[in-house]
Design a protein around this nucleic acid. Sequence first.
DNA 1: GCCCACTAACTGGTCGGACCAGTGGACTAG
DNA 2: CTAGTCCACTGGTCCGACCAGTTAGTGGGC
Lengths: 249, 249
Amino acid sequence: MPQFQPVQPVRAYERIVEQVEEALARGDLSPGQRLPSERELVTQFAVSRSTVREALRVLESNGVVRSRPGDPKGPEILPYSQSALRKQMVRLARVDELSLSELIGFRMIMDGAAIQLASRLRTDEQLAEMEQTLVAMREAIDVDFDAFSEADVAFHEAVARVSRNSLIQVCNEVVRGVVLGLIADKVSHATNSRALMLESLQHHTEVVEAIRAGDGHAAARIARQNLYDYYATYVPTPDQPHLQALLDD
Amino acid sequence: MPQFQPVQPVRAYERIVEQVEEALARGDLSPGQRLPSERELVTQFAVSRSTVREALRVLESNGVVRSRPGDPKGPEILPYSQSALRKQMVRLARVDELSLSELIGFRMIMDGAAIQLASRLRTDEQLAEMEQTLVAMREAIDVDFDAFSEADVAFHEAVARVSRNSLIQVCNEVVRGVVLGLIADKVSHATNSRALMLESLQHHTEVVEAIRAGDGHAAARIARQNLYDYYATYVPTPDQPHLQALLDD
DNA sequence: GCCCACTAACTGGTCGGACCAGTGGACTAG
DNA sequence: CTAGTCCACTGGTCCGACCAGTTAGTGGGC
């Protein structure tokens, strides 16, 4: 007997979405190009305009296209953006399926890996870039916490670029955004924020030193420890061992 | 002068989506509950059915609800699932600029981290589970490569579960799927596939031994080395240093 | 009394047509 | 050649309709 699979009805708009996404995956469609107008798609797909519109709404919600009223050139194919990925991660985090400790643990892994890679693959120019972001952090301490946080982001982005792995870059950026969105207010209201910033700067300087020396393990270890020290207080006590397991002994 | 922000028109269906998602975030709506029927929503939101449907399509594409034709109870609020997150990650991975070396490098990081966490957080039952998947791998060698690959997946999934970090689980699963999709045929056509499988099993056994001993670093190192040995030949030579940078010296 | 087949009132999926406000390109007047 | 007007066309929304399918309630047969 052949094995039969349960079949659920495939709706017309879904097949439109599939066709567009396939064209995108095959390269027949690339960012910047335009889709035909809705009324034109109606004739091409031989469906009603409602169906075309439902497909476009789904594509739009997935960050694939964008429609603008009155634009004679039609819906635009968007370049890939992390916004949809971030949206899903935020949703995951909001449903409490994703605990803060998981997010921070993931950041420790990603950041540590990026730094380890950076310490082996960096060029001298890139090292200089990283040191430049350290200077910016020091200057930002005297402004306010937001400025410091911004400079901190710039540092981590520079490191992620050097890692030459765009998956790391994206994951880092997304998770950082989610974490910040979850606890930014708590951190910025900390009484001893200046001390925190100074300590963080110190850690970052040590990381760069280790990168300069090419000691990837030390650099990654310091980075993970820094993240742990920075965030551990916001993590429920029973979850803290999950983070400590990522620290070197 | 006040700083003005560019405003873009908010479409009616977007406000419906927002209202539903807010209700969900506030807890006024929980998984398992039902939304009113489309025609009922038409009166509640005071919009047309097309608009309601576009909102429902977006919610459905985001994995928030599911509509079934004929169901008098109306669209169902779904429990959170990672499928939408996975979809976005697959989209990211499919963007052509993502090279095989980046994917494999990411796998080395993820798998290594999962194994390091597992070696510290595992219970005895979980260790037994992992050893069980090793037995399955050994048995699968005598069947065929697909069976072995399946058992291998089971092993890595077991490890990811023990890591207690669902982000790692999802990332691992997604990246593994993408990598396999890219080079599965090449691997399975290798002439010495039996030797490869035996070697892989040997490596996995060593990993489990290190996990049993609680030596997270050794376990992670072996795992990364295993992945490197397994996949490096498929990576263009100029990219190989990017992977070697992830191996311990 | 219970069980089963039937019916009817829904459901979502799709269609076609209509109107509106706005865009942008072409066309015209200067 | 420029500046202004105009109009074809865009997407956003609405309405009404039909269909196939599910489901719950009804009714009849046992």
